[in-house]
């Protein structure tokens, strides 16, 4: 099948991931359409981060096949993907400006003007040392790093974890306004369902390493007759 024509940015089949003592993913078959904002929901340990890392090409599945934009993973894939990790991956001794310049050096698709714009809208001071930023400000910086690239696939692992509500609102606003309809796909894992609900096209509920539900947010709401937040309560009860 011609994957390009199928309009899927991500195609996974039979993905298993086993760590030494744990089955993190147990048979994921998944097609994600281009141009969507997809919410990846699930409790701790359900496999969200593992799935995102596999898509980012940072770890390999124990078995199964991964296709990103119709192609098998290779070194070039990283040029098409921006990934925001859950961990703190930025150097504390750099300033915000230095961080952005440093990261810009890795990517041909870096948009310096976009980074400046985001810096201003997210109220970050470029002269501050990363080490001295609050958790909320560091999270904003991580998001700037991910959104300043011009790539078809953006993966955000828990962009809101441990972040105050005003930073959350700012981050959601930036994701929505920077989203390039039709060209980009965003896959975002989160626990903050109620706040992120308005921005999702599609939603996936993971449970113990497999996909429990995956559909458009509208379909899920109409099937269950309630919001995603309340569906969460039902699914993980």
């Amino acid at each position: 099948m011609d994957m390009e024509a199928s309009g899927n940015i991500v195609e996974l089949s039979g993905i298993h991931k086993r760590y030494i003592l744990k089955h993190a993913l147990t048979g994921i078959d998944l097609e994600i359409k281009k141009g969507r904002i997809v919410g990846l929901l699930g409790p701790n340990g359900s496999g969200k981060s593992t799935l995102l890392k596999i898509l980012a090409g940072l770890i390999h599945p124990t078995s199964g096949t991964v296709r990103i934009d119709g192609r098998a993973p290779d070194a070039n894939r990283k040029k098409q993907i921006a990934y925001l990790p859950e961990i703190d991956h930025l150097y504390g001794w750099m300033t915000v400006d230095e961080t952005l310049r440093f990261i810009a050096g890795f990517y041909d698709d870096w948009q310096a003007d976009k980074a400046d714009e985001l810096l201003a809208t997210m109220n970050l001071d470029g002269r501050q040392k990363v080490r001295n930023l609050s958790k909320g400000l560091r999270a904003r910086l991580k998001l700037i790093v991910a959104l300043s690239r011009s790539v078809p696939l953006v993966l955000l692992d828990e962009p809101f974890s441990g972040i105050d509500p005003s930073s959350r609102a700012k981050i959601i606003r930036s994701i929505v306004s920077e989203f390039r309809t039709g060209e980009q796909t965003i896959i975002l894992s989160t626990h903050s369902v109620s706040e992120s609900e308005p921005m999702f096209d599609d939603v996936m509920f993971l449970q113990q390493g497999s996909v429990r539900l995956f559909d458009s947010a509208d379909n899920l709401r109409s099937d269950y007759g309630c919001s995603l937040e309340n569906i969460w309560e039902k699914v993980y009860a």
């Binding site: 609102a169 606003r173 306004s177 989203f179 096209d201």
Partner: peptide, 17 residues
């Protein structure tokens, strides 16, 4: 505009469209 509308309410641009 679409973009303004999406930004005002944090609604997914595809939904606004």
């Amino acid at each position: 505009s679409l973009k303004e509308r999406a930004q005002m309410s944090n609604i997914n641009p595809n939904t606004v469209q």
